[in-house]
Computed example of a mutant assay.
Amino acid sequence: MDPIETTVAAVREVGPDAVAIDLETPAGFEAEPGQFVKLSTEIDGETEGRFYTVSSPDTDETFEFTISYDPDEGGAFSEYLLNIEAGDTVTITGPFGGDYYEDEARVVVLAGGPGVGPAVAIAERALADGNEAAIVYRDDHPLHEDRLATIATTGADVFILSESEPLTDAVADVLTNDEGEQVFIYGFADFLEDANDAIEAAGGQPEEAKAENFG
């Protein structure tokens, strides 16, 4: 999809130093949970942009992405996003990415830090479709706790771990290795490495996981 301008519908806090931004869905735009878009704007005469993974279960009318930030660090684009308000216009391009939810019978999402955005989106979509879901999320400052709690009340397995806790036991609890089960991994490189090790320890196939490395 070519770059297209759209409008911010809402901005809200979703945890420590994190916000979710809802955008109005442009005509003809569709994205599946797990795909990502490029958000861009012009700052001091230069076009600046970054990629963000969709954190809403669908793109009906609006769609969401989640931003976590370090208040002691950041640049012009981070400042732009942190000051964005409902009614502002932004430019999006996409969607991008081939590792997304495709109506699998059971989804197991392993998420580190900001990877919780696509994790809750995929789990919510799977459950709405009548499929099974499980989340293992590691973060010292959890985001989207209300959505995680709601997902857990449906009977889905949700593990929230601190940064110091290993993934091994939780992954072993949620991974069935049955036909129709799909593992997703979202996080930074060190988390992906830990997740792959945990999958292998649980008898799974890490190379078959759908994964996005945030850097």
Score class of each variant (00 low, 15 high):
Gly94Asn: 03
Ile43Trp: 01
Ala86Lys: 09
Glu61Trp: 10
Thr89Asp: 05
Phe36Ser: 07
Glu102Lys: 14
Val14Leu: 04
Ala119Thr: 05
Glu5Arg: 10
Asp139Ile: 02
Thr62Leu: 05
Leu110His: 01
Asp2Glu: 15
Gly49Asp: 13
Glu85Leu: 00
Ala76Gln: 08
Ala128Asp: 08
Asn177Trp: 04
Gly112Val: 00
Tyr100Pro: 07
Pro95Glu: 11
Pro71Trp: 13
Ile122Lys: 01
Ala126Cys: 07
Ser68Gly: 10
Gly187Leu: 04
Glu124Cys: 02
Ala76Cys: 01
Leu81Ala: 06
Gly45Pro: 03
Asn83Glu: 15
Ala86Trp: 04
Phe65Pro: 08
Asp58Leu: 11
Glu208Ser: 14
Glu179Gln: 06
Val8Arg: 05
Ala9Asn: 12
Asp2Val: 07
Gly117Ser: 12
Asp44Ile: 01
Leu192Gln: 02
Gly98Phe: 08
Pro95Tyr: 13
Glu124Leu: 05
Asp99Ser: 11
Lys38Gln: 14
Glu104Thr: 05
Asn131Arg: 15
Thr150Val: 12
Pro16Glu: 14
Ile151Gly: 08
Ile160Asp: 00
Ala10His: 14
Tyr52Asp: 14
Thr7Asn: 00
Ala211Cys: 10
Asp178Ser: 11
Glu102His: 12
Val183Phe: 04
Asp157Thr: 15
Val120Gly: 02
Pro16Trp: 07
Val11Arg: 08
Gly75Pro: 10
Asp197Phe: 00
Asn213Asp: 15
Val174Cys: 04
Asp17Thr: 09
Ile4Arg: 13
Ala149Pro: 03
Gln35Lys: 06
His144Asp: 09
Ala211Leu: 13
Glu13Val: 03
Asp173Met: 10
Thr41Lys: 09
Ser55Gln: 08
Gly34Arg: 01
Gln182Ser: 11
Gly115Lys: 12
Val90Ala: 01
Tyr186His: 06
Ala134Arg: 00
Leu148Trp: 05
Ala209Trp: 00
Ser55Lys: 00
Gln182Val: 10
Leu110Tyr: 01
Gly130His: 05
Glu61Tyr: 14
Ser78Val: 08
Phe65Glu: 10
Ala18Asn: 11
Gly203Glu: 13
Asp70His: 11
Ile84Cys: 10
Phe65Ser: 07
Glu179Ser: 15
Gly49Met: 13
Ile84Asp: 07
Glu64Cys: 14
Arg106Gly: 03
Phe77Val: 11
Val109Pro: 02
Gln182Trp: 02
Phe159Glu: 07
Tyr101Phe: 14
Phe51Pro: 00
Arg50Phe: 03
Val14Ile: 06
Glu24Asp: 04
Leu192Trp: 01
Val120Asp: 06
Gly113Gln: 11
Glu145Ser: 09
Thr168Cys: 01
Ile122Gly: 04
Arg12Met: 01
Ala211Glu: 14
Gly215Lys: 05
Val107Pro: 00
Asp129Ala: 12
Ile160Glu: 14
Leu143Met: 14
Ile21Glu: 04
Val54Asp: 10
Ala211Val: 13
Gly187Ile: 08
Thr6Glu: 03
Thr59Ser: 11
Ala209His: 05
Pro142Thr: 10
Phe51Glu: 13
Glu46Gln: 13
Pro114Ala: 15
Gly74Ile: 06
Ile92Phe: 10
Gly94Met: 06
Val11Thr: 11
Glu48Arg: 15
Tyr52Phe: 15
Tyr101Trp: 08
His144Lys: 15
Glu179Asn: 09
Val136Gly: 06
Asp146Ala: 12
Glu24Arg: 05
Leu127Tyr: 01
Asp88Cys: 06
Val174Ser: 03
Gly75Cys: 04
Thr153Met: 03
Asn83Ile: 07
